[in-house]
């Protein structure tokens, strides 16, 4: 799942993802201060924390990474390019392929 996507991510993509990862770690670690170079292993993260981080990466970035990547790239700076390069992931179920962000159905224009 960490094979490269169709296009190489740009530096600004990686910057954006890095700041999202910082926010995700801060949230999952209950508001501990997190920086680009904060190391998960120093922040008291457990395997359960890792699962929650992966879940937020799925939810917010539509990307799936193996849990082991969190150990191998334990800082936002190291992890961001790995996440950026991961394939888009929305799940395997049919209902997970519905695109809810697209325009609202046309026959509802009447109700404001």
């Amino acid at each position: 799942m960490t094979t490269a996507g169709e296009e190489a991510p740009s530096a600004s993509d990686i910057d954006a993802i890095r700041s999202r990862i910082v926010a995700i770690l801060a949230s999952v670690l209950d508001g501990i201060e997190v920086h680009d170079d904060s190391n998960l292993l120093d922040l008291g993260a457990t395997s359960l924390t890792a699962v929650r981080i992966r879940s937020r990466i799925r939810a917010e970035l539509d990307k799936e990474i193996p849990l082991i990547d969190l150990l191998e790239y334990p800082t936002p700076r190291e992890l961001a390019p790995v996440v950026a390069a991961a394939e888009r992931w929305t799940g395997d179920e049919e209902w997970q392929q519905l695109d809810w962000a697209s325009e609202e159905a046309a026959d509802d224009e009447g109700s404001a």
């Binding site: 209902w95 519905l98 809810w100 697209s102 159905a105 026959d107 509802d108």
Partner: peptide, 13 residues
């Protein structure tokens, strides 16, 4: 799941 697909088509929200 059929309900979700219907809701998606009908309201998209």
């Amino acid at each position: 799941t059929a309900f979700a697909a219907w809701l998606h088509g009908r309201f998209r929200r």
